[in-house]
Design a protein around this nucleic acid. Sequence first.
DNA 1: TTAATTATATTAACATTGTTAAATATATTA
DNA 2: TAATATATTTAACAATGTTAATATAATTAA
Lengths: 197, 197
Amino acid sequence: MGNKEIQERRMKSYFIQATKEILKGEGLKCISVRNVAERAGYSYATLYNYFKDVKDLIFECVLDFQEECEEFVKGETESTPSGPGKIKAIAKAYIKYFIQYPGIFELFFLEKTNELAHKQPTIMLIYSFLDKLSENEWDFCIKTDSMNAEEAVITRDTLHYTVIGMLLFYLNRRQPVTYKEFTERVEIQLNTILKIN
Amino acid sequence: MGNKEIQERRMKSYFIQATKEILKGEGLKCISVRNVAERAGYSYATLYNYFKDVKDLIFECVLDFQEECEEFVKGETESTPSGPGKIKAIAKAYIKYFIQYPGIFELFFLEKTNELAHKQPTIMLIYSFLDKLSENEWDFCIKTDSMNAEEAVITRDTLHYTVIGMLLFYLNRRQPVTYKEFTERVEIQLNTILKIN
DNA sequence: TTAATTATATTAACATTGTTAAATATATTA
DNA sequence: TAATATATTTAACAATGTTAATATAATTAA
């Protein structure tokens, strides 16, 4: 990798770092070109030497957040033994991460993309992220006969859609109102979908 | 109702009508105060005599769209006999409506509200809308013993969250890519959740 | 080492947003 | 008809994303 690339990557990282901080702190609505650039220590126009537009910039954060989320989920679930219970634990940790950083949920699922073409790989990554996190566990359940292979795919989707639906309603529509109610409902939904108890 | 109220309601309706047209046509991103006012035949500042802000305006459209959606769902499902199959038909019609008007989906589930307090009734309405549409059918299923009463509540939630999750991914993240794939997946999910076949 | 050239960063500017204050037109009342 | 109240519009502001022109820094050639 030439000096050019190193320097460019470094410059990009300054803006990305600033964007990530704002996203985790104040949230997506506080992201602005001037805001990010100021925090990165550059003029707002400099940003356009490294990113096509502001959407480009914020979607470059996705990968970093996914890695962070993956680490978080692993940390929260490493002591849980394999099986449906582990899939449940993974889903709960996944939910916990987005509850902690609503701005990242917005970025992953709500934020609109201009031109879909260029960001399609990122979008695809977001879509399959929960599946990736629990991939091995589904395989385990199928192998140990606690699940049917065909049904597993459907159940995996139900789980995914339900988790995102619950997060959307709670984070965006305050429904249910309290966090306690929310976690209780999460518990019930996960148990039912995964046929636990 | 005094003349004052009649006139004010009429004025509001002009702006609301314009907003609804833009929402159904060009979508939420094309809503702007100037855009709406121009279509309504007034200056942009006039709007502020009748609405606190632009969020207020667009959330006043919710009720009208719900009525429209309700009519649509009824029309699409009136010939379907009661039972789980009818709940499925209602869910499919509900989905169909939002596929037809993605801007209304955005307004209902994605658009952020400033001050939650004032709009809480509207938000509540959105949240319970699908339940309201299929309320009688759930009761029917419980009465005819095709469903357990406690389980029904949970299943109803699973269905709701899954439907919104599927719509979110398809409309906002083009996942799955084709409409055909989407409808196939809808079919599978609804059948599984409602234990049809 | 210095001059010319290239690359990078900044300032200025533009168009578009939502919103408010001042000014103007319209309707109502005395 | 004159005075007052109400309704509407124009002008203006601040914030947004983005681009063009300018200034600065780095690199290369002599």
